[in-house]
Amino acid sequence: MEHSHFYAQIDRYAYTNALAKCSPITKGFFAVSALLISVSSSSALLSATIFLITTIVTLYVAKIPFHFYFDMFTLPTIMLMLSCLFIALFFGYGEKLAEIGMLGFTWVIFKNGVTLSITTFLRVESALSCLFFLVLTTSITDIFITLRKIKVPKTIVELSLLIYRYIFVFLEVSAKMNTAQTLRLGNSGFINRIRAIALVAGNLFIRTLEQGERTFIAMNARGYDGNLHVLEDLPKPTKIALIGIALFDAAMLVLIILTISIGVI
């Protein structure tokens, strides 16, 4: 799975970045509030500001290498560009921007379709930068502990932990099976490859379930009662950081009001 490789890198940065020791509540507060502000307005100026600020924080404060950050943006941006092109060319109404005569059809491009696609593009980029900040600076374990602290139902957190573990069991088992098949010339040639994929698909599920059940029995034998107790010694959020983030959010809200009253998009 090519995803697992990319994911392993994200996970490594989540544990090793310069903000890793910082309280997850502070980081979560910054990322989520910036995210909410950037998606609740369609102002291009606001989107660009939030994108720049979160990118600077990610690159210079959390010290994520530029090339990796750039790589993370590449695929979503390409897909986003295609989507926005699709919107600009086929959607919108009202004022016409261009008309193209083609094979007897007239193809109309509307002005508000183009505006919509540009604002959407910027909004998605700024929202992605907020999401990437959270992903690259906070490890999943910290997120679990934080979720438990903010009183998310216990069953959800437990099930999430188990699913998280199972995803890796899935990947491990399938990698092992693939290696075994390749060693036995299972992936040589088209027909053999199809057969190999079918065998893996059929057996992967049952193998994972068996391994999971063994884990579950082992957990029960050690007194598992539906709660996983882990040591929760996370750093507490500092007041200065929280106030700073609140001020930043307030400034962004003022910017929204300003752009609306001046009439800039």
Binding site: L159, F205, N220
Partner: peptide
């Protein structure tokens, strides 16, 4: 049915993959 929990988690992982 506590023993259903691994199956539930597996379904989740299956949906994820």
């Amino acid at each position: 049915i506590p023993e259903a929990l691994p199956l539930l988690a597996l379904m989740g992982a299956f949906v994820f993959v």
